[in-house]
Design a protein around this nucleic acid. Structure first.
Lengths: 227, 227
DNA sequence: TGGGCATGTAACAGTTTTGTGACATTTTTC
DNA sequence: GAAAAATGTCACAAAACTGTTACATGCCCA
């Protein structure tokens, strides 16, 4: 998910273009729709990582779209952020149990919406960890949250685990400290970038607690990578 | 690219000075031009990271300038943001397939324009890094920060890496010491141009540490090139 | 052929970046 | 509610990288 795809559903062209622009600027790939009919099609076609969905859209209402997406097995795990015009609506929408994952009331600040989009994607990533990853003699099981090195179970703390799973998603890729803070810690919270170094150190120790060589690579002036 | 260079092309002095002032306040280095003729010269001379280009300028029109810049290999990767006076024009300009990367309609808010400038530069930077480049038997992977020569991994320091990736972006192109200082070191810091020579030497050694012939070429009185 | 430049490079003295133990706090566990 | 685990930050040490200088070497042209 190096450039996440966001499906943006909003019928008001001006708002759509502002949002689209900002999402793109943040590095997302944006697919746009202005009515409920298209959403269902575009979702199947593009399999976006996340959907930003206005409640009031032509043809099929946002609520209905949301319901349908949450029913189908292919699409129900895609997070949906619902936009609604007023807070009374929000209560109603929420009460309807549509299955949306987050709600934003207009007028929203674009910054806030983006923050929520990122937050959802972070969650998604953590959840995506249901899968098993492996690199060299290291195996990581996202379901049981266990890590093995040559069949010996390693003991690592939560942060070390998230750090490792980030690395294992793309072995070899160099992550800057900022990127790691973003993915492993969450951008909202202020943490010193040096903290990353310390946790890298702890992860290293954990990975080598029963021997083996350090699989983490320090890239001076850039960040860290696995392998 | 620690202090990006923006080439600002606008013939109306008042507007130009407002924009220039604000861009500088945002930490950009600004080169100004008020006619199409100069743009082509200044672009080659300064190799700006981005061009803000008014559609209506004397001598050579913005559209023509844009086209020419997008044809030349040296300049076609420089993002261009086009300014046009009215939205009808915008449609026309856009229709002309000039290759501009973004469009802003007058009257624009300065804040918005700056936001777009930043967005373009973010994209550029994101693209520049993470790229896989290759030349002859040398491969450079911007994602893993690894460099290979005939499948053997080379060890280079940060500056050597940036230097090499600059060369590999345009094999054969001759870079002056000043241009290299700009791109590899960043403009804000004062460094002697002889420093470039030293690092070129180090890069040469790094590239040949396991044999092979020196792929860097010294161009007497000008600078250096790859191949 | 020799003088004047431009470039190559070893050496060294910083400077910056990274590694890590220690410690105070917070959070979790039982 | 106490003990244990995990976390974030700091301070200092170690390592890697840099810029400059000084001198060597090579190139060009009269």
């Amino acid at each position: 998910m190096s450039q996440p795809v966001v499906l943006l559903v909003e019928d008001e062209p001006a708002q759509r273009s502002v949002l689209s622009y900002n999402l793109k600027a943040e590095g997302f790939q944006v697919v746009e729709a202005d009515n409920g009919e298209d959403v269902l099609l575009l979702t199947r076609e593009n399999l976006p990582d996340l959907i930003v969905l206005d409640w009031m859209i032509p043809q099929v209402s946002g609520i209905e779209v949301c319901r349908r997406l949450k029913v189908s097995n292919d699409t129900k795990s895609i997070p949906i952020i619902m936009l609604s015009a007023r807070s009374e609506e929000l209560d109603r929408v929420r009460g309807l149990e549509t299955g949306a994952d987050d709600y934003v009331v207009k007028p929203y600040s674009v910054i806030e919406l983006i923050a929520r989009v990122k937050a959802q994607l972070r969650r998604l990533r953590a959840a995506a960890i249901g899968e098993k990853l492996s690199y060299d003699d290291i195996r990581l099981d996202g379901e049981t949250y266990k890590v093995y090195r040559s069949d010996t179970e390693l003991k690592l703390g939560p942060t070390e685990f998230r750090l490792l799973s980030t690395f294992m998603e793309k072995p070899g890729r160099v992550w800057t400290r900022e990127q790691l803070l973003d993915r492993v810690w969450g951008r909202d919270i202020y943490v010193d970038t040096r903290t990353v170094d310390v946790h890298i150190g702890r992860l290293r120790k954990a990975l080598c607690q029963f021997g083996g060589k350090d699989p983490l690579r320090t890239v001076r002036g850039a960040g860290y990578a696995l392998g």
